[in-house]
Design a protein around this nucleic acid. Structure first.
Lengths: 126, 126
DNA sequence: CGGCATCCATCTAGATACTG
DNA sequence: CAGTATCTAGATGGATGCCG
């Protein structure tokens, strides 16, 4: 009956979902986000501790990436109204489930360091 | 005996390994690389097929990312010396093992679409 | 068809400095 | 301590055109 109409609506939904998925994927599938998620793990870390834990990240990128992850419900941000201020970061439940796969990626990298180094030399020998 | 010397050497090795790990991680922990790896999976795909499979990637970024992945021993590149030329891409063994974790990330994204969408609205309501 | 080179707009990320 | 704002070099990525 309303087949045409509903198929149009469904296509719209699918496209919106795809756009959303792509955006989310882009948010988490980048170096800093993944390293932050992995650094957090089960821990509760303050801003400064995270800054130390994620080697090479700048103050600004840490804030920025944390905001994105917070917005996507991956990290929790708990502000203590003290002086000096104190902010605790933890992974949400969703974040924790993501962390296991992120960790797998880190393990993969460590596990293949030598193989990759060799592959590179082989590749560069041309 | 040579404790000082060897500890210096070891630290050098560790630092080199860390630098390598970070470089490799940066190479694979980015949107396009992960999407390419996921698109390949068990399949053999030609350049054009990959281009169609990875939505939104430009001709140039596809070539560029493929070169990096090939250099790191994640993808195989098989050139058929025909006219017109034909190039087949597959994942290497290392690439395949990485793909399983990448796929987990994609599944995670799909699985949390609604949660995230909600989290965003909650966050933006401020 | 697949790849490379070039040009160019845009985005990113680092440095710095300032606020509550 | 944590966050924001501004500025800027450099990386990124898209468009185009040419080559094998």
């Amino acid at each position: 009956m309303t087949e045409q109409l509903s198929s149009v609506e469904e296509r719209g939904d699918v496209m919106r979902a795809q756009a959303l998925a792509r955006e989310i994927f882009a948010n988490i599938a980048n170096k800093w986000a993944l390293l932050i998620i992995n650094a957090l793990g089960e821990n509760t870390l303050r801003f400064t501790e995270l800054h130390a834990a994620v080697e090479g990240i700048s103050h600004k990128m840490l804030t920025q990436t944390l905001r994105t992850l917070e917005r996507d419900g991956v990290v929790n941000r708990l502000v203590h109204p003290t002086v000096p201020p104190r902010v605790d970061y933890t992974l949400t439940e969703a974040g924790l489930s993501l962390q296991t796969t992120v960790n797998a990626m880190c393990v993969w990298t460590r596990r293949h360091l030598d193989t990759i180094d060799e592959a590179r030399h082989h590749f560069d020998a041309r």
